[in-house]
């Protein structure tokens, strides 16, 4: 399932990141990589932007970017 399908407060494990190498590198710098655990902390109006937590870091993502991250429930 996609990251955007998670509800606020839900936890998941990253399965795959389907993005170009630039974005993938950036996400990796934030600690986002396959196998890592994340949780959804909040979102703005109409889920346009999503706030997630990974390894203690809070990260804001736009919907389009979040859609590229495939996750599964642990």
């Amino acid at each position: 399932m996609k990251l955007t399908e998670l509800k606020q407060g839900e936890e998941a494990v990253i399965v795959n990141i389907d993005a170009n190498s630039e974005l993938r590198n950036r996400l990796l710098s934030f600690g986002l990589a396959a196998g890592e655990r994340l949780s959804v902390k909040g979102h703005s109006l109409a889920k346009q932007t999503i706030e997630i937590e990974i390894d203690g870091t809070l990260i804001a993502l736009r919907r389009e970017e979040a859609d590229k991250i495939e996750v599964k429930r642990p």
Partner: peptide
């Protein structure tokens, strides 16, 4: 083009 939005939120 649109640029991705990924940003750290400090505590």
């Amino acid at each position: 083009e649109d640029d991705p939005f990924v940003m750290e939120m400090p505590k």
